[in-house]
């Protein structure tokens, strides 16, 4: 199948990255990444520590400033000066390893703050949407709790609900379960799997190979700032082509 020359809605990738480079001083972290996530796809990114996974993910909404290359969100080059970056960011949900909930606000306020501030929704509407999303992550009864009083797994589910309350077109996850006690990982992965089934576009940096295999449409293996190998998760996991992929998988599986 050849790419259409005049992309129409639905045919443009949700995320497209071309020739992305990123260096800190003289340390080159991303060395020319080409990468895309189609609308509705779940793409998992794996790789050894320091390979640049987080940096790549954080370039997608320009929390990290790329040194060179193009980042297109639904066809829009977000490095263009004319683009309203904050508007683009509001359409890209992001979930962090350390949750980053607002500790001075209740769970409900965590979910309504940006809805009201960015989307300009009224209080009632924001609260209603917040409650829908809390229910979705199974934490309706926690709406008046403060983050410090929740377990790590609950905090991460609130963080997901917070991102969802903006009605994003896509979601970015940076090792969402790495800071969790093992018994709490399942709840969070469950919520993410449900999201995937509803058709959410997702880019997930993870060490959870089970999740990547079960839920992912595509698996990308990164090492040393480049994409070494990508393909269907079953193929990459059971039949890795590259020596570096093989040695990484033999250590983690």
């Amino acid at each position: 199948m050849t790419a259409s020359l005049t992309p129409e809605a639905g045919t443009v990738p949700a995320i497209e990255i071309r020739g992305l480079h990123k260096h800190y001083g003289r340390h080159e972290v991303l060395k020319g990444i080409d990468f895309h996530v189609d609308s509705g796809q779940v793409v998992c990114v794996i790789g050894p520590s320091g390979s640049g996974k987080s940096t790549l993910l954080r370039c997608v909404n320009r929390l990290e400033e790329p040194s060179a290359g193009e980042i297109l969100i639904e066809g829009l080059d977000i490095c263009d000066r004319k683009v309203d970056l904050d508007e683009v960011r509001s359409r890209i949900g992001m979930v962090f390893q350390q949750f980053n909930l607002f500790p001075h606000l209740s769970v409900l306020k965590n979910l309504t703050l940006a809805q009201r501030n960015v989307r300009g929704r009224g209080k009632d509407e924001a609260v209603q949407i917040a409650r829908q999303n809390l229910e979705k992550v199974g934490l309706s009864e926690k709406e008046s709790a403060y983050p410090a009083h929740l377990s790590g797994g609950q905090q991460q589910r609130v963080a997901i609900a917070r991102a969802l309350s903006m009605n994003p077109d896509m979601m970015l996850f940076d090792e969402p379960t790495s800071a969790l006690d093992p018994e709490l990982v399942g709840d969070v992965l469950g919520v993410m799997q449900e999201l995937a089934q509803e058709g959410m576009t997702m880019m997930v940096v993870t060490h959870e190979m089970g999740f990547a295999r079960e839920v992912g449409d595509k698996l990308v293996f990164m090492d040393g700032g480049v994409v070494v190998e990508e393909g269907r998760p079953v193929d990459v996991l059971s039949n890795p082509q590259h020596e570096r992929t093989q040695s990484f998988l033999s250590k983690v599986l």
Binding site: R89, I92, M94, L101
Partner: peptide, 8 residues
């Protein structure tokens, strides 16, 4: 980062 990623 959390606030900016929400578009604030």
């Amino acid at each position: 980062e959390a606030a900016r990623s929400l578009g604030m």
